[in-house]
Design a protein around this nucleic acid. Structure first.
Lengths: 117, 117
DNA sequence: TAGATATATATCTTGACGGATATATATCTA
DNA sequence: TAGATATATATCCGTCAAGATATATATCTA
């Protein structure tokens, strides 16, 4: 599946507490590295490292401004995640849990096995 | 934030290729461990291990059926993920990228600094 | 031009996690 | 009850990524 790699990139970038906090913080609007450091109370190199991962996953982008670097969210990966969830949403609507159906198929298959012996 | 831990659990459970494949496969309906093993072509203990992680994240649940264990998706974590994305959706609708606004604030702050000297 | 400021990069260490293998447990069936 | 079937658990190993620290780079300012 072509989109699996993209999803994994997005999901693993978000699945780290500090990075998720950064994303939540950037939700309010663009911020410089220094502001993120201040907000999260983390060593600056650690923040830069996490921001690099977020950039590579396409979740944020940078805009240089003198010595500062302004980071901001990109909509695309969130929209892709949203589209992926969409396929699940459709299934809830009808019937997410098709256990009964499955168990009946299982029993039918077993009877078939028995009759073949 | 109360929901951060939940989100991290969900995201890190999904952010592993084999587990994401399992979830995609279970999307079609409930399946036994053996069927998942067959589908993913992975060693059975590895599949059981991944399923355990998925159970602990609340993404799937088990239903014993003789020697077999039938796994199926649970809707809740997906819905929670959906709700989390909802807050981002709202921001895209108006203006996701408030860079101009931010830069103006930044310039205003700098002028203020200068005038204080 | 010499600091000062802001950020990135390089390097090392450590812990967690995925993969592999062997084995235990539970249930069915002959 | 003895295997056969289905799955879980235990253990070990190797890798990778996050944290910490030091340093490099770029830009501003006096």
């Amino acid at each position: 599946m072509w989109y699996i790699r993209i999803m994994i990139k997005t999901l693993s970038a978000l699945a780290e507490p500090n990075r998720l906090h950064i994303v939540e913080y950037l939700h309010d609007g663009p911020r410089s590295v220094g502001e993120i450091v201040e907000q999260l109370q983390l060593p600056q190199p650690q923040v830069s490292k996490h921001l690099r991962v977020l950039v590579e996953a396409g979740l944020v982008e940078v805009q240089p401004m003198a010595q500062r670097r302004i980071y901001r969210l990109r909509a695309q990966p969130f929209q892709e995640l949203d589209e992926w969830l969409e396929s699940f949403r459709r299934v809830w609507d009808e019937r997410f849990d098709r256990l009964e159906e499955y168990l009946q198929q299982l029993q039918a298959a077993q009877k078939k096995d028995e009759s073949l012996q």
